[in-house]
């Protein structure tokens, strides 16, 4: 999958201002960014559900704007916030969605694998929140997709359900693009993280590279003062010389990745 110079405007409003992104087969990439950064728009363009204003986009060697049903059959989507088909039975819904694809999973096995084996005859609306989410994953992958899109998959989850969902995603063996505004989620699930802020990819790399690239200044505090610096070691050395010995109440605080990320978001917004 490759994206270069992707732009999208709704009338006067520019939502994407030149997005570059590439993904290797089998890799999990997180598209991380604050609300309104353009994450969902990007995914919808990649799925061929929205026409872009400008830029080059290839997904599975095809331009999504021209992708037909055969191309679409190689993609899977786990939607955010869906309560669809409430009256249908779980097994019936999964079999119906499977029938859209040329070579789907055996639905009974898939339900079993996702821990829904006993609920095939339940109505969808009778599932618990976590079970509903697992069904969404089953619906997204029943067609044996080569690429799976997860759009803010854990929004509105309690911590327990979130953990369960993360464990489930980690077992999936396919190319995955997920959007999230939760840094911890991106770090946990993704091989590489792309930070999308105000319609542009600000950083793209492993979470270690991300930490290095977005590093916010460290805070150095001591009895007589405090200072923000990118080189705390240097400052500590100077203080050491100034006090001619141990610095009283010296404290060096490195920013967490979370703080660095927020710092990046604020900097880009300014």
């Amino acid at each position: 999958m490759s994206v270069s110079g992707l732009r999208m405007s709704y009338g006067e409003r520019q939502v994407l201002r030149g997005v570059d992104l590439d993904m290797r087969r089998g890799e999990t990439v997180a598209l991380l960014g604050p609300n309104g950064a353009g994450k969902t728009t990007t995914i919808e363009i990649l799925q061929g559900l929205r026409r872009r204003t400008a830029g080059e986009v290839r997904v599975l060697d095809e331009d999504p704007a021209r992708g037909g049903d055969a191309w679409r059959a190689r993609l899977g989507t786990v939607l955010q916030n869906c309560h669809d088909h409430p009256r249908w039975q779980v097994g019936t819904l999964l079999a119906h969605v499977a029938a859209h694809y040329p070579d789907p999973w055996e639905t009974g096995e898939l339900l079993e694998a996702l821990g829904l084996g006993g609920r095939a005859n339940s109505r969808v609306r009778d599932l618990s929140g976590g079970q509903r989410r697992r069904l969404d994953v089953a619906l997204g992958m029943v067609g044996r997709p080569e690429v799976l899109f997860l759009d803010e998959p854990t929004t509105g989850f309690d911590p327990e359900a979130r953990k369960e969902f993360h464990e489930l995603v980690e077992t999936l063996d396919m190319t995955i693009l997920l959007t999230t505004h939760d840094l911890a989620e991106a770090e946990r699930l993704a091989d590489r993280v792309a930070v999308l802020v105000r319609g542009r990819i600000e950083v793209f790399g492993t979470s270690r590279e991300l930490a290095a690239a977005v590093q916010a200044p460290c805070l150095v505090r001591w009895r007589d003062g405090a200072e923000q610096t990118d080189d705390p070691s240097e400052l500590a050395w100077k203080l050491h010389q100034k006090y001619d010995g141990p610095v009283p109440d010296l404290e060096i605080r490195r920013p967490t990745l979370e703080e660095s990320y927020l710092n990046l978001v604020e900097r880009s917004a300014a």
């Binding site: 989507t77 939607l79 869906c82 669809d84 409430p86 067609g143």
Partner: peptide, 11 residues
Amino acid sequence: EGALRRLRTLP
């Protein structure tokens, strides 16, 4: 409920 959104993503 999202049924239309889901169907749009299916071939």
